[in-house]
């Protein structure tokens, strides 16, 4: 289903830090997270290692940035706030958002297992056209996303490639924000 290096690659990339992480996890506020509590289907091989994706992603944010960081991506979040980041080719946009701590509310609720659609992102037309077509399973989930557009994708299924350098991805605007301000208690 996934055509580019997703979590597994991230995991191998950070395998060296897992040892360290395992010991650190004991003391961290995340220590209580039951690792491998609910294993994502089809990911048994790595989840059976007993490390939750959460830890892997966290480890990425704690480690030093790999030297090959070189693709620039601009994120515009639900409030219109723009963040620019430079990332490694091959990682998924979900991993980028988490490791770079981009402020997007509730992004990636299912840890990239195609079960939530909270990683919905809107792409520029020319970038969208150039991307590989979606597999059915991605469209199935995407179709449930709020604020669906013609150039929408699920961020956990899109991997950063060199040619995407400089692209802007947008989180669907939170229309309800404005509506809320005008509602008063009766």
């Amino acid at each position: 289903m996934a055509r580019c290096v997703h979590l597994q690659s991230l995991l191998s990339q950070h395998l060296h830090s897992l040892h360290l992480l395992a010991s650190r996890a004991l003391f961290s506020p995340m220590a209580g997270v039951r690792q491998g509590l609910y294993l994502p289907r089809g990911l048994g091989s790595w989840s059976s290692r007993g490390f939750s994706l959460y830890h892997v992603l966290n480890s990425a944010s704690q480690g030093n940035s790999p030297p090959e960081d070189k693709v620039t991506i601009h994120f515009v979040n639900q409030d219109g706030v723009r963040t620019t980041t430079s990332v490694t080719e091959g990682v998924s946009l979900l991993n980028v958002v988490i490791t770079k701590k981009i402020d997007i509310n509730g992004f990636g609720a299912c840890d990239g297992t195609l079960a939530c659609s909270t990683c919905h992102l809107i792409f520029e037309e020319n970038i969208f056209q150039k991307m590989e077509p979606m597999v059915d399973e991605e469209v199935d989930m995407l179709d449930l996303a709020y604020g669906l557009t013609e150039t929408s994708r699920l961020g956990c299924q899109v991997c950063v490639q060199k040619w995407m350098d400089g692209m802007t991805v947008q989180v669907p605007k939170d229309v309800k924000n404005e509506k809320m301000a005008s509602t008063v208690n009766q």
Partner: peptide, 13 residues
Amino acid sequence: HPEVKNVINTFTQ
């Protein structure tokens, strides 16, 4: 549907 239950990681945090 165990993958749906991954939201528990965030709830635990």
